[in-house]
Design a protein around this nucleic acid. Structure first.
Length: 600
DNA sequence: CCGACTACTTAGTATACCCAGG
DNA sequence: CCTGGGTATACTAAGTAGTCGG
């Protein structure tokens, strides 16, 4: 296999040096501690399930306390001014801040909000405020708009002050020490209270997300570390020392009752190693995917219904990169599905469609309520099986009634160690990128054209994984701007060509050095403008093709970064053209280890 | 096998920020 | 120097998948 990337152990030293250059006593102390821990052990492997041996951090940063509105900002009920209690006012401001958003017009949102708001009211408020439609938040809303406007208009000095305060916070709370590394924490700030905004048609939208207090917080750190003190006058819910998990802080959220965590940044050793491992698992799948494909094709003929369903579902997961589709609690979340949870109503069978045989039409809402719509020709056996699965069922019945993700994953585990449904998405995404890069990269292209090819390869993956985005609000406008830039450039080019022509004619007559030189410089100018024009045109194509497709998600989560690094090395593309700073930090391990001949 | 619980990855959108061009 | 538009980052919701106890 591949060697362990040196980047993590090297980073540890770099981080220590950086800390030592810091001015505050605090950071010097940290640096010294870090170094002594660094001596304790060098990058050793841990026994199964152990995630770390030493963990020290400063605890979370809590949301700023509520600041009551100034006296002159009024709330009106039924046309009359009403002074709200602090608690009721705070919740009202959450609604007022969202007044322009479509959410606040939705029936469920309003109902949930009003119900939770009433819980925060005094008994007098409760008896007065009985109808949300009679509540007038517009003055509050205007006040907040003015506030954010004022924030934009702040002087440079004021903005600088805020920036410095954020930096201070980051420096103090944004890092932890895990073993011999000083690591960046991903989300050290606790989520502030507000109104829950689910995606899609979420039954809980508008509910009050309550303020998290120290008493809700579980701290996880090692016994021999400096345990972070709770804010004065408060206590932690619990301090534990569990080195079988990677999180530093957790609390239970009140909307779904699920646990939220504070964890490390993707640049950290613990996340990076896991990421690397993920792609290694996908590469192991590459070695046996043919066998697995043959196997599930055989299983389409099985006598057992359960086996047939499993085999058809796996075919979808493999061919269409569908998600596994865990069961969800009905009524608790938006109604979305993945492969195993598909219902009869989500597919249509067309024995023939647009000249193709055996077409399956998919139409369902997947993760984040993003619509998956696709017409796919399938093999006859798959088609016949689907007909069988749908026999005597209602639209709302499960398509794969004998199957769930746990059954499927158990089966996959037998086919390959560590294989689960999601590995297929990773595998197919990465292999597609590699193939597309081979196919689309033209060795004679210049760098911008090669990058366009890269983006097209990336886009093929995003389409496969159905990574969509709302077209940016400014899309049309920015396209028009770009087009007028292109037009201007074309005119400039025409001018330059005319000038070149006349310079040539001039040189022919004069036949002197000076006019020859002029021709040369005019030639250069034409070339330069041609290049600029081509760059703009490439940009326009790229942007148009990207209108509704999000490239970021696949780049960050599905594409083995070593493929991209190798491609950059092979074609002499600076890595900065492909990965921004954050991405380079996350993929430091890959940048470190991949050579130009890397094969996924 | 099931449901509850837990830990972790993947996801789109809102907002902050920065820099090119007027 | 200012502005606006485009990119980077922050945010947090919504998935996957494992474990455990009955």
């Amino acid at each position: 296999g591949d060697p362990v990337p040196a980047v993590w152990s090297r980073n540890a030293l770099v981080m220590v040096e950086e800390a030592e250059r810091g001015r505050s006593m605090e950071s010097v102390a940290w640096a010294q501690d870090t170094r002594s821990w660094g001596r304790k052990w060098e990058e050793e492997r841990y026994p199964e399930g152990i995630k770390w041996k030493f963990l020290e951090h400063k605890g979370p940063v809590f949301a700023p306390p509520y600041e009551p509105l100034p006296e002159n900002v009024k709330f009106y009920y039924d046309g009359k001014v009403m002074k709200l209690s602090t608690k009721a006012e705070e919740v009202a401001t959450f609604f007022a801040k969202m007044l322009d958003h479509e959410y606040t017009t939705k029936e469920i949102f309003r109902k949930n909000f009003f119900k939770d708001w009433r819980k925060e009211m005094t008994s007098e408020e409760k008896s007065t405020i009985t109808n949300l439609s009679k509540c007038d938040f517009t003055h509050m809303s205007q006040y907040f708009k003015a506030q954010s406007e004022a924030r934009k208009q702040m002087s440079k000095e004021e903005k600088q002050k805020i920036k410095e305060e954020n930096e201070r916070l980051l420096k103090e709370y944004g890092y932890c020490v895990m073993d011999n590394h000083k690591e960046r924490i991903a989300n050290f700030k606790i989520e502030p209270p507000g109104l829950f905004r689910g995606r899609g048609n979420h039954p809980k939208m508008g509910m009050l997300k309550r303020r998290i207090m120290p008493e809700d917080i579980i701290i996880n750190c090692s016994k021999d570390s400096k345990i972070p003190p709770p804010p004065p006058g408060h206590k932690w819910k619990e301090v534990r020392h569990d080195n079988k998990v990677t999180w530093l802080v957790s609390w239970t959220e009140n909307i779904q009752g699920s646990i939220k965590y504070i964890m490390l940044n993707p640049s950290s050793r613990i996340k990076g190693e896991k990421d690397w491992q993920k792609y290694e698992t996908a590469r192991r799948l590459k070695k046996c995917v043919d066998k697995i494909r043959n196997q599930y094709r055989e299983d389409w003929k099985s006598k057992e219904m359960k086996v047939r369903q499993r085999a058809v579902a796996l075919y979808f997961i493999d061919k269409l990169a569908l998600r596994a589709g865990n069961e969800k609690e009905e009524g608790e979340t938006a109604d979305t599905v993945g492969c195993c949870s598909l219902r009869v109503e989500h597919i249509k069978l067309h024995p023939e469609l647009d000249g193709q045989e055996y077409v399956v039409e998919f139409d369902f809402l997947g993760k984040d309520s993003i619509r998956y719509y696709n017409k796919v020709p399938v093999e006859k056996r798959v088609f016949k099986n689907l007909q069988l699965f749908m026999e005597n069922k209602q639209p709302e019945d499960d398509l794969f009634d004998r199957l769930n993700t746990s059954i499927l994953n158990k089966h996959l585990q037998d086919l390959m160690e560590g294989l689960t449904a999601k590995v297929f998405r990773t595998y197919n995404a990465s292999i597609t990128l590699q193939q597309q890069l081979k196919e689309l990269t033209n060795p004679d292209d210049n760098i911008p054209a090669k990058i366009l090819s890269y983006n097209r390869a990336n886009r093929a993956v995003a389409i496969l994984c159905n990574h969509q985005r709302a077209p940016p609000k400014t899309f049309e406008k920015s396209m028009m701007n770009l087009q007028s830039k292109i037009d201007a450039k074309k005119e400039q080019l025409a001018d330059a060509r005319r000038e070149l022509k006349s310079a040539k004619a001039d040189a022919k007559v004069r036949r002197d050095e000076k006019s020859k030189k002029t021709v040369e410089s005019k030639k250069k100018a034409v070339q330069r403008i041609e290049e600029q024009l081509m760059k703009l045109e490439v940009q326009a194509t790229d942007r148009e093709e990207n209108k509704q497709i999000a490239l970021g998600t696949s780049k960050l989560n599905y594409l083995d970064p070593r493929i991209s690094v190798a491609w950059c090395k092979k074609w002499g593309i600076p890595i900065e053209k492909i990965y921004n700073k954050t991405q380079r930090e996350k993929f430091a391990w890959a940048i470190d280890m991949a050579e130009e001949d890397y094969e996924f």
